[in-house]
Computed example of a mutant assay.
Amino acid sequence: MSNEIITLSHGSGGKATNKLINNLFYKYFNNEILNQQNDSSVLPLINGRIAISTDSFVINPIFFNGGDIGKLAICGTVNDISMSGAKPLYITVGFIIEEGLEIDELEKIVKSMADTAKKANVKIVTGDTKVVERGSCDKIYINTTGIGIIEDEKYYYSGDMVQAGDCILLSGTIGDHGMCIMNNRENLGFDVDIKSDCCLLNFLIDDILSVSKNVRVLRDPTRGGVATTLNEIIEHSNISIEIEEGSIPVKKEVSAMCDILGLDPLYVANEGKLIVIVDKDDASKVLEIMRKNEVGQDAVILGKAIDDGKNKLYLKTKIGGKRIISMPDGELLVRIC
């Protein structure tokens, strides 16, 4: 294992930069488009509507139970493109690296990105590397842009498509990522093994769209959790949403940690969960196909859209009461992605 570290010379454009690019980035990201090695990459002709998304990843710590900043960057970008019903094709990556980062750590991150991109069937086609002085960033930041193609004529998935009676489906347990990062980072001393749910959702979405043409919304409830995402959907609709407390899937370790810290799992971040709003007549078959997918085995029908003219998110409690779930006032935990 090498003790070699990133130095400012790796960002100078000279021999050290060239060595880093050739021995690390080209080694793992190798494909015919990237290998054009020009200032810009020329993509094949794309026929259809183009979906594009950009994101930046500053997570702390950069390695965590269930993933790392590299895997997160690819999963997050692929998932965002997929939420529009698009097929993700290409990703660009930009690295901001702090002087002093061990090259072995950088290689683990780059390899993780390459492995995840291969699994998603996307290509990393261009990128950039900058090195900054110690203290100017926290080890490494990654910026990505994703490009996808919308092949289906019906491509518009948005809150304003939701109708009263539609069902709200959730692909699995909530709060895993946020509590994993909090437990890894804050040294709280919880003796629990919580693993981030960081994963690719594009193939799950393909499965869903193969059985239903009546999907209204596809969203991944990342920062702010399920409660924030549902409130955002409601803001763009003319309906309210009612969810069942007894249907909310939460792992016991996550629930226990949230109870101790006074947190509500509905507001805790996820990085591998999907909210689907679909016509009630298609809900059962969508739920069935979700449960057949590896990342949707714990899928549930969480609730339904209702028309009460108030545009609110309601939680129907286990004892039959009902309360309003609002947007959070602030970030529960920063730098979780």
Rank of each mutant, 00 (worst) to 15 (best):
Q163N: 12
G165N: 04
G296N: 05
L230G: 03
N121H: 12
K213Y: 09
L72E: 07
L72R: 12
V286D: 08
R323H: 06
N202L: 00
C180A: 04
D115Y: 04
G148C: 06
E32C: 00
S136V: 10
R223S: 15
I248Y: 06
D281G: 04
T229L: 05
M257V: 14
Y156C: 06
F29R: 02
I289K: 12
N3W: 09
M179G: 09
M179Q: 10
Y314G: 04
S53C: 08
S12N: 14
E102N: 06
I234C: 04
D166W: 09
K27T: 05
D308T: 05
I174D: 00
I147E: 08
I239V: 14
R134H: 15
V132F: 13
G330F: 15
A16F: 06
I50F: 10
G11M: 08
I324E: 05
S210L: 02
V268N: 06
N214T: 10
D128A: 15
C198I: 01
A117T: 12
N202I: 08
N202P: 01
N18F: 13
V286A: 03
V110S: 00
V217C: 02
E186A: 12
N23G: 11
L332H: 12
V286T: 03
I306N: 08
G76S: 05
N121L: 01
M161Q: 15
I325A: 12
G11N: 10
L313K: 08
N79F: 08
N187L: 03
C137V: 13
L332M: 13
G159D: 08
V215L: 13
I91Y: 09
Y90T: 12
V211M: 03
N311A: 11
K273D: 01
S84H: 13
E133C: 11
S237D: 05
I239K: 11
E331M: 07
V192Y: 13
D166K: 07
I6E: 07
S12E: 15
N293Y: 09
P328C: 01
D281E: 15
A117H: 03
E244L: 03
I97F: 01
T173V: 11
D104S: 15
A269G: 08
I301E: 12
L274K: 04
D191Q: 15
N23C: 02
M182R: 10
V268S: 09
K19V: 09
I46K: 11
V226N: 01
E235M: 13
V254Q: 07
N293A: 02
E151R: 07
G76M: 02
Y157D: 01
N23L: 12
L106K: 02
I289H: 09
E151C: 08
C198G: 00
